[in-house]
């Protein structure tokens, strides 16, 4: 199982490195969204709950782009068949894809979050950086699990590009809610507030529950 995941993951990263299909698009989309928010809100700097909301909405929509592309290479170039012919645990594909999406999101955030601080954020990002990183990681895990599940659900449909956001956005509302609530005190003007532990716990529980659900149902998306 572990070696299969490693094989899939290294294939995934090599492919992304060659094609540069998902991550650059997600980064550019994030930055473009900040610009749109700047004009849409008519603000030069945002703080507190507004900053948290802008950041999470942007990251969420950027993630949807990645989710849309997640299984396209498998679907179009026979990757599913190639994988299904091998004597390996099929859950490995779920794990590898979720890890891929998780890594993509982390890479995107390495650029997009500092860009947010530079372009829109009022208080300095450094005032609560470790806490913010923790929230980002937990939210990424949730987006990665649900995103993989939704991408797997939508890949066989004719209208994939429409189905993915329509399913993913409602499912990710609790993630957005919890992550935004967590980040609000971290992005306050005049010193960061404490991290709301209950919301952090909700985020973690939600991640865990959907990881279990995804584990239970993912095999059925591969069978024929």
């Amino acid at each position: 199982m572990r070696s299969t995941v490693a094989a899939l993951l290294s294939k995934e990263l090599t492919l992304e490195w060659r094609t540069r299909e998902s991550v650059p698009a997600m980064v550019l989309f994030s930055i473009a969204t900040y610009v749109v928010f700047h004009f849409g809100l008519d603000r030069d700097r945002v703080t507190g709950d507004l900053a948290s909301g802008v950041l999470w909405v942007t990251l969420l929509f950027a993630a949807i782009l990645g989710v849309n592309r997640l299984f396209v290479a498998e679907y179009e170039q026979g990757g599913f068949d190639g994988f299904l012919l091998a004597p390996v645990d099929r859950t490995a594909l779920l794990v590898a894809k979720a890890l891929t999406l998780f890594l993509f999101l982390c890479i995107v955030e390495v650029v997009a979050v500092p860009a947010f601080a530079l372009l829109l954020l009022g208080p300095p990002l450094t005032q609560a950086l470790p806490e913010l990183v923790l929230v980002l990681l937990l939210a990424n895990a949730g987006i990665a699990v649900l995103g993989t599940l939704v991408a797997g659900l939508a890949i066989q449909t004719r209208a994939r590009d429409l189905i993915v956001p329509l399913i993913a956005l409602p499912l990710l509302v609790p993630v957005l809610l919890a992550a935004a609530r967590c980040a609000t005190p971290l992005l306050q003007d005049g010193g960061a507030g404490a991290l709301p532990a209950d919301w952090l716990a909700i985020l973690a529980i939600y991640d865990l529950l959907f990881a279990l659900i995804a584990y239970a149902v993912f095999d059925f998306l591969l069978e024929d």
Partner: peptide
Amino acid sequence: RYASVFAIVAGAF
């Protein structure tokens, strides 16, 4: 089958 997977995920949601 896909609809069932959707129904389970959504039902848990």
